[in-house]
């Protein structure tokens, strides 16, 4: 290597490092900018929840009146309770059925597996508005057929089937269940099969193998699936709008209330929910980290 060559090399490396550093700074600045973009509306929501003015358009000073107003608005509280109930049931059903489906998939005949896979993809991709409308029409037709039979079988005491919280749960479960299946199957692919085989070689019952080997490995996927299902169900407007009967959810309430200007009590509720979710997530993060540390310490030979 000649001296000039070395010099050039050095200069080139320095220049590359400088470009890299400048690029890094630019990337950081850009990322911060995107985060500002993401949080701007959230800041607005929180600020207006403490606004004394009666409408979002007039900023008037600090007040917590909207928190009290939200708490005493029976429509809002009832919608909130409906939304929570529906989201919890959706998450439970979607997680159980979606996980079961994922576990069964590998044991299905290939053609059957392809069919179930296809149905899952269709469930995920069909737009909410289409599934909402199709469900409404189908459910109503089905109820018209079923109700006379129910009356006949029960001797007239059966309650009539109709749209309500249950139909929203049914429609939400369809989509979220498919998501859970995809997540769990992805996890299964990365799973260590040798443990399951070892467990089987030791003549553990399939149920025991599942509980002690498979389930713990799948848990992260199942938990994130459940969370996604809950979030989707809680925030969905369009499917709930079509499949709801008289039980309205928070998004339906919000959508209807914009007509005459949204009350800041809505912002108050949103702020409370945001704080609760952030605290829950932080807590969950803390607990899981501590759990990991303990497990790490307890491992033999470590």
């Amino acid at each position: 290597m000649t001296a000039t060559g070395g010099e050039l090399d050095l200069r080139g490396a320095l220049r590359a490092a400088r470009i890299e550093r400048a690029g890094g700074r630019a990337a950081w600045a850009y990322t911060v900018l995107v985060f500002v973009f993401l949080f701007l509306p959230i800041v607005i929501v929180v600020v207006y929840s403490f606004n004394a003015g009666r409408h979002v358009t007039d900023l008037k000073g600090f007040s917590t009146q909207w928190y009290a107003a939200a708490w005493s608005d029976p429509f809002l509280i009832k919608a909130l309770r409906n939304s929570l109930t529906i989201a919890v049931f959706t998450a439970a059903l979607a997680t159980i059925m979606g996980t079961a489906c994922a576990l069964a998939m590998d044991r299905l005949r290939p053609r059957m597996r392809a069919l179930v896979e296809l149905l899952g993809y269709v469930a995920i991709t069909v737009p909410g508005i289409v599934i909402g409308i199709a469900s409404l029409i189908f459910l109503v037709t089905a109820f018209d057929w079923l109700d006379p039979w129910l009356v006949f079988v029960s001797g007239g005491t059966a309650p009539r089937l109709g749209l309500g919280a249950a139909t929203i749960v049914a429609a939400h479960t369809l989509f979220t269940m498919a998501i859970v299946t995809v997540l769990v199957r992805t996890r299964m692919r990365g799973m260590d099969r040798s443990l399951v085989e070892a467990s089987e070689d030791l003549f553990a019952t399939p149920w025991r193998t599942f509980l002690q080997v498979t389930l713990p490995q799948l848990l992260p996927a199942i938990v994130s699936g459940a969370l996604l299902a809950f979030t989707f169900s809680f925030d969905d407007f369009i499917i709930a709008f079509f499949t709801s009967g008289q039980d309205q959810t928070v998004p339906i309430y919000l959508f209807a209330s914009i007509r005459r200007g949204v009350s800041p009590s809505v912002n108050a509720i949103a702020t409370v929910l945001l704080v609760v979710t952030i605290l829950t997530m932080a807590l969950a993060g803390l607990v899981s980290r501590r759990g990991q540390r303990r497990r790490g310490a307890g491992e033999p030979g470590s």
Binding site: P41, V56, A270, L274
Partner: peptide
């Protein structure tokens, strides 16, 4: 935060 509330913001 609810999609609708963010969009109203």
């Amino acid at each position: 935060t609810s999609f609708l509330i963010r969009t109203y913001a």
